[in-house]
Amino acid sequence: MILLASDVPQCYVDNDWICGRYWSEYRPELVDATIQHLWITVVSVLFGFVLAVPLALLARRSPTLESIVVGGTTIIYTIPSLALFSLLLPFTGLTATTVIIGLALYSLTILVRNVLAGLRGVPDEVRESARGVGYSNTQMLLRIEIPLALPVIMAGLRVATVSTVALATIGAIVSYGGLGNLLLLAVGNQFKAQIFAASILCVGLAVVLDLVIVVAQRLLTPWTRHAR
């Protein structure tokens, strides 16, 4: 394809931050990057959540276990994302798995603490009553404790999701960073319109996912609305 000088939009020539033509011409790239960003985020947070619940249940068995779980996850949380992805590189290579394991470990840290805090917030009288009417341990957990802890758990899910969206951009170092890939490409060619578009979409994605969780929480815990 030969592009005539007159075909090149002025905002490309001037390298403007805001360029309408970029959004339409690069729509396929933007859509692909957003979709990759979305699935990496969702899979990572779900993976983190699936690990966090049993860890939290284990941690509340004894103070020693709690300090091991909370301390261990805090150590992981201290490691910067660029370093964590790089440390996983020899094991999982340049794949999405590298990014997903890293991001899941970070969300795990947030989620374990919130699940623990949520379960701890369940009043003892409620537990006693449930025990009195003959609930088993499993029934108590599923029907009493988890529903009552849900607001705190969902709050943790919001924090984990929003920060995972932002962190996923660093996955660009192994070519699986969603919108971060577009950012990394722009380091070389200094394409400002691309940086602006990817940044806006990234923040937008965080806001949308946050709203989705808020709505989900309202639907799952209808009783909290009246309590306030």
Partner: peptide, 18 residues
């Protein structure tokens, strides 16, 4: 702090540097 979490460090660094 909620806003700080949602904004990617990478994007801010790029915008500032360019």
């Amino acid at each position: 702090s909620n806003v700080g979490r949602a904004i990617p460090v990478f994007a801010v660094l790029l915008v500032l540097a360019l």
